[in-house]
């Protein structure tokens, strides 16, 4: 029906147009929603690298999303209370600069992904799904019961973190930040999937032996993919913390893992802009169905089920009439 590029361009254009129109119409909340779409889509882009290209069905990406969020929250809370983050072996203070927070969020979620990935990738298939889920639960319980950063109550960031030259408290400017990050993530995913690394990764998904035969260790290949995937999702988490000016263990819950997966699959697995389509549809449904019925989650479930059963290739698959990737 449409070429995938056309669909992608249209999606991105809509994502940009909606906040601009909302700004003109004096509806700043719509901008907040669009920002949420961009951030969730970015989390999905991260997962898509593991899931779409690597065939690694991670049910634990909430761990990275939350760890990224906590990195932002913890640094900001120390900056706000003027207490050092640590005093030994050397003193490190908090910060409210996104440009410092982001690398920390990337590093923290990357390390977490390295540890979880190194253990989980020893297995495959359904084991992998359950183990990633279980590790995310472990992080979740830790966050709930560790009192230093609010535990179950979560951690407020009273003022949104700063970005040089921008007023991040302005919804439109913050949207611009999130949108730029999202585009960057997509770019990484595109470059990665076309690189030799990406090709090998997709090769390993289809036929491990062939990859092994050319002397590539599939374990290391997947681990690297998993870490990159976790890092992108972690950065999305840091942005999400700033969007809400709040971090809590619910970012780490298994429902969050499920939702990130839903974004990817609603949109279409392994498509660069699939998570955008998925996240946009999800947010739209959440808001539209929510006003239809108190039991809107039932309808959401039903719709999701129908998509999985009958709309193979997700939203983009339907729009392009190509249930499978080129």
């Amino acid at each position: 029906m449409f070429r995938e590029t056309t669909v992608n361009t249209a999606l991105v254009a809509i994502l940009v147009a909606v906040p601009l129109v909302a700004q003109a119409a004096g509806e700043p909340f719509i901008i907040t929603l669009a920002t949420k779409v961009a951030i969730f889509a970015m989390a999905g882009v991260g997962l898509n690298i593991a899931l779409g290209y690597g065939g690694l069905v991670s049910f634990g990406h909430a761990a990275f999303f939350g760890i990224g969020g906590y990195a932002a929250g913890i640094l900001a809370s120390h900056a706000q209370s003027y207490t050092p983050l640590m005093t030994w072996p050397f003193a490190i203070g908090g910060t409210q600069q996104m440009l410092i927070i982001w690398p920390v969020a990337l590093a923290a979620s990357g390390i977490a992904a390295l540890v979880i990935g190194a253990l989980s990738l020893r297995t495959s298939g359904v084991y992998f799904i359950m183990i990633t889920l279980a590790f995310a639960q472990m992080v979740f319980y830790f966050a709930v019961s560790w009192p230093a950063y609010g535990g179950e109550d979560g951690l407020p960031i009273y003022v949104r973190d700063k970005f040089p030259g921008l007023n991040t408290l302005d919804p439109l400017q913050f949207f611009a930040v999130a949108f730029a990050c999202f585009l960057l993530a997509v770019l990484v995913s595109v470059v990665l999937s076309r690189s030799r690394f990406g090709l090998a990764l997709q090769g390993a998904r289809q036929n491990v032996e062939r990859v092994r035969a050319v002397g590539i260790d599939p374990y290391r290949l997947r681990l690297v993919a998993f870490v990159i995937s976790g890092m992108i999702t972690g950065l999305a988490g840091a942005l999400y913390a700033d969007l809400n000016r709040f971090v809590s263990p619910s970012m780490l819950s298994w429902q969050t893992s499920g939702e990130i997966m839903v974004f990817v699959i609603l949109g279409g697995v392994g498509r660069h802009f699939g998570p955008l389509a998925g996240a946009a549809l999800f947010i739209l449904l959440e808001h539209e169905l929510g006003s239809v019925s108190e039991y809107w989650q039932f309808l959401l479930g039903l719709l999701l089920l129908l998509v999985v059963l009958f709309a193979h290739g997700g939203l983009i698959g339907v729009l392009t009439r190509r249930p499978h990737r080129d």
Partner: peptide, 21 residues
């Protein structure tokens, strides 16, 4: 497995809200 996870995740939503209903 991916489709299975998603479809059964959808079923959880339906069962939970349906029961509440």
């Amino acid at each position: 497995h991916l489709d299975q996870v998603l479809a059964t995740f959808a079923l959880i939503l339906m069962f939970s809200e349906g029961t509440r209903w």
